[in-house]
Simulated scan of single mutants.
Amino acid sequence: MPDEHVSILQSLGVALLAFATVVWGFGLVRLMRRYRSGADLWGADDFLHGLPSQREAGPHLEAVELTPAERDAFAVLVRRLNDGH
């Protein structure tokens, strides 16, 4: 028995919210079933068209030969960084 302080509009509001929740739940279940069955149709050879294709190999590696003075300067820099920590 409803409480005597609850109005008819409040009771109808609760009933409407409960009904909307049930309808939303059924809609969500239907939506999930539809997309789940569609996902089963995808094969391993399908790919996403919105993503760029992957490279077969990595980028070309670049190398620069250092002069003896540059190598010495780099060695000094590395020693300074190692001494600081």
Score class of each variant (00 low, 15 high):
F26G: 03
V23W: 01
A39G: 06
A44D: 13
L12W: 03
L61H: 08
V6I: 10
L28F: 11
V78C: 09
L41P: 02
A20F: 12
D72P: 00
V78S: 06
D46F: 03
M32C: 05
Q54V: 11
R36L: 12
S37G: 10
P52F: 02
A15W: 06
G84I: 14
R71G: 04
F47H: 13
V22S: 07
H85Y: 15
L16N: 13
E70D: 10
F47I: 05
D40P: 00
M1N: 01
S7H: 01
G27V: 02
L51V: 13
A39E: 14
F74E: 12
G50H: 07
G25A: 14
N82P: 00
P59S: 12
G84V: 14
Q10I: 06
E4D: 12
A20D: 06
L17H: 08
S37D: 12
E70A: 12
F74Q: 15
E4V: 05
V22G: 05
L9V: 11
L48V: 09
D40K: 14
R36A: 14
G27C: 05
T21W: 06
T21S: 15
L66Q: 09
A18L: 15
L31M: 05
A57V: 12
H60D: 13
L51W: 06
L61P: 04
L17M: 14
L77R: 15
A18M: 12
P52A: 04
L48W: 10
R36M: 08
L51I: 11
H60T: 15
H85C: 10
E65P: 02
N82F: 08
H49Y: 03
L81K: 08
Q10L: 04
L28T: 13
F26C: 05
E70P: 00
D3P: 01
V6H: 01
S11M: 15
T21H: 02
D72F: 02
E56L: 12
G58E: 01
L66M: 15
D46L: 04
A15E: 12
T67V: 06
E4L: 06
A69F: 01
G84P: 01
A15D: 09
V22W: 11
E65W: 03
Q10W: 00
R80Q: 14
Y35N: 15
A63C: 08
A57H: 13
T21D: 05
S37M: 11
V14G: 04
E56Q: 11
E62Y: 12
F26T: 02
E70H: 03
H60M: 14
L41T: 08
